[in-house]
Design a protein around this nucleic acid. Structure first.
Length: 460
RNA sequence: GGCCUGAUGGCGGAGUGGUUACGCAGCGGACUGCAAAUCCGUGCACCCGAGUUCGAUUCUCGGUCAGGCCUCCA
């Protein structure tokens, strides 16, 4: 296996070689839990879940350590808690639970670690102290700031030389900053906001230091892979790197930086600050999680993805095709349990999920038309391949009939039987009337030599 | 203004210096009482201009258009 990944730092695909194959480390920036996450927030969840699964397959399940953090200290959380008149934990616990439940429905494996900023406070403060000792940070006016001139490579990840950044700065520079690009490591809380004791007075951490500290505490520095949305390259990841390198005196921080492209909704960027939000939580009521996962992986992870209802419908039909092939091959005993070579090769080429998914259709075709031997092999490879990245994990019957309760199922079966009788009697008008009834129930009938089978036209 | 991406058929979306993406939708046929599903066949593309080349959608340059970041949005 030769996994090649595109590294934002070098802007090219490189062979991935972990520092220690027995302990592969990956960190991905997770959500700020103040509301239900919109579907764009789940793109990195799904993308890096694919990478997590691929790494586990390559190095062993226990050899891959994956940390995805939760930001639970934030202005927006404070605002939400104040609105509801509750403690921030009430807000963060609620939305973290929803987030994890939604992620699970999207087929994402739980990360090895899910550190929370509020539970990493000691490590955050300790790291800031170290940065101050290393002359990479300074206290001023109740704040602690990172001194960007202390790190010669500052700007390398995002490709922004420090002097250009200063020239382009549009924000008002706080008077206590030595350099305009310096950023906050610790700041005083406003009245009523949560605060923690520190050597610099009561306050709370800046956003960037949280991640660096959580990485160091859960995985140790440096790590093999750091992921996140492309919008985080600057300033978040640039700052993380500066902090990590200056705190540890190790130049790597993360050997690879991976960034997923944005999800766009119509002409506008999809974000919570605009009104055009599609919450994954709501989408999951209308579509199977697997279909949403498919839609999120249908294009390359680095390319922007246009999100619309067509995309979801197409994703569901694509899965119908694959599940349909499995359903028709229910009596075929799967042979071989390895993903196909072509499928793996596609994924190993910087997670080319589109190419990999095309391979699944090729296997489905073989499963429909091959010899008995070919079918057995195709079924085994199709399942092993798809399962590797979290697809086709359901029973085909469940996929097509999952949302049907026993009462409705009995009614449908009754109608199917009645229609079979009408068909045997060649009473076509009656048979068609019954089919219309079934259609009204969202049921599609498929006549076969062994009698009629059915499935839901739209699964939830 | 600075930095950085991308532009592929009706839609989504890979890839390649000369040959099939793939899925959905369309068309013709098989199967079916009619359908559906499936199978067989089939039409439709590589932003514009110049260059390199025997040959470019694929490489280079220019242009146009679109998008991202430069503000604690994944």
């Amino acid at each position: 296996m030769t996994l090649r990944l595109h590294d934002t730092m070098t802007r090219e695909k490189r062979d991935f070689v972990p520092a220690d194959p027995k302990r592969v480390t990956m960190y991905v920036c997770g959500p700020t839990v103040y509301n239900f996450a919109h579907v764009g927030n789940f793109r990195p969840v799904v993308v890096f879940d694919v990478l997590f699964r691929l790494l586990r397959a390559a190095y062993g399940e226990d050899a891959v350590l994956y940390a995805a953090n939760v930001t639970d200290v934030d202005d927006k959380i404070n605002l939400k808690a104040a609105e509801e008149g509750v403690a921030i934990e009430v807000v963060t616990d609620r939305y973290l639970a929803a987030y994890n439940a939604d992620a699970a429905k999207l087929g994402a494996l739980p990360p090895t670690f899910q550190p929370r900023a509020t539970q990493t406070m000691a490590a955050i403060i300790e790291m800031i102290e170290r940065l101050v000792r290393n002359n990479a940070a300074y206290a001023a006016d109740g704040h602690v700031l990172f001194n960007t001139t202390a790190y010669s490579e500052y700007g390398k990840l995002s490709g922004r030389p420090l002097d250009e950044m200063i020239a382009g700065a549009r924000v008002d520079v706080a008077p206590y900053k030595r350099n305009p690009a310096d950023f906050v490591l610790w700041k005083p809380s406003k009245p009523g906001e949560p605060e923690w004791d520190s050597p610099w007075g009561k306050g709370r951490p800046g956003w960037h230091i949280e991640c660096s500290a959580m990485i160091e505490q859960t995985l140790g520095l440096p790590i093999d892979i750091h992921g996140g949305g492309i919008d985080l390259v600057f300033p978040h990841h640039e700052n993380e790197r500066a902090q990590g390198v200056c705190a540890t005196h190790d130049q790597t921080y993360s050997a690879f930086w991976l960034h997923n492209g944005f999800l766009n909704f119509g002409e506008e960027k999809m974000s919570k600050s605009l009104g055009n939000v599609a919450l994954a939580h709501d989408l999951l009521k209308a579509y199977p999680g697997e279909a949403i996962r498919w839609a999120l992986l249908v294009g390359h992870y680095r390319a922007p993805l246009e999100w619309n209802s067509d995309l979801l419908d197409q994703a569901r039909r694509s899965l119908d095709r694959l599940y349909g092939a499995l359903q028709r091959a229910a009596d075929v005993a799967a042979f071989a349990s390895h993903p196909s070579e072509a499928f793996l090769a596609a994924l190993e080429d910087d997670l080319n999920t589109a190419q990999a998914m095309a391979e699944l259709f090729g296997l489905a075709s073989k499963l429909e038309t091959g010899s008995a031997e070919e079918k057995a092999r195709a079924k085994g490879e199709l399942l092993a391949s798809a399962n590797l990245i979290g697809f086709l994990t359901a029973d085909p019957e469940t996929w097509f009939k999952g949302g049907v309760d026993e009462e409705l199922k009995a009614r449908i079966n009754g109608l199917i039987t009645a229609r079979d009788e009408a068909r045997r009697a060649k009473d076509w008008p009656q048979a068609d009337r019954i089919r219309a009834e079934l259609t009204a129930l969202n049921v599609e009938v498929m006549d076969g030599p062994a009698g009629a089978t059915w499935r839901l036209k739209e699964q939830v």
